[in-house]
Amino acid sequence: MTLLAVERIKLFTTRSPWWCAAVALAIVIGFAALITGTAPSDFPVTVRTSQFGYSFGLAVIMVLAALSITTEYRFGTIKSTFLAVPNRPAVLLAKTGVVALVALVIGELAAFGALGVSTLLAPSSADIALNSAADWRQVAGVGVVYALTAAMGVAVGAMVRHSAGAISLLLIYGMVVESLVPLIPRVGEDIHKWLSFNVAEKFLSGGAAGGVADGPPLSTSTLSPGWALAYFAGVAAVLLAVAIVITRRRDA
């Protein structure tokens, strides 16, 4: 508990988490307002389309999470940290816990905020009530995916140690590489089914009806939403474990 409090103090006594939180909320909720306000009458807003800004918020979460650890290396505070708490795995786990919790809160605020804005702006005929488990997962699941993504961000940040390197790696992978993989002849589609953010999308929108016009493209993962979440969490856990092993062995 002490370590969680320490990491909480460290996170919130710098500016970047506040900026990241504000930007994430503004983007996700702003996109919902934009989409709802401009939706043509033959394509009414749904729960799913209200969450259109999700992937942009995800990018901001990656930045927040990576910075939480890379700035410690950048400014040498990681040494102060390890002098105060020589148990490095405990430090990384505590940091991951705090950052993931913050990401969870941002995700829930953003997702329900987006839904709320859509409800306000949409004509009363639109179907954006949360009336199925799938609808709930689509909205409430955003925070969960953000939290696990934050864990990946901390892990990658701890491995790479440089802000620019870690952030580029995360963003290029999450935003570009995954969507380019299907272009690889023959095996591309099969590989893509198992890539982490594609699988996370399956957890969020797995049961949702509708086609491409109904929002971002649906996931090609063959897992059930529950297993998709477990798989995504597993990827985060493996990355974190590798980061912990590397951090323990390395000179601070």
């Binding site: 002490t2 370590l3 320490v6 103090i9 460290k10 006594t13 710098t14 400014f75 040498g76 102060s80």
Partner: peptide, 19 residues
């Protein structure tokens, strides 16, 4: 210089003390 430049002296010492 092992201090985050955007953190105040008090905040820096507070987290160290807490730990």
């Amino acid at each position: 210089r092992w201090v985050h430049p955007n953190r105040s002296a008090r905040s820096h010492l507070t987290w160290l003390a807490k730990a």
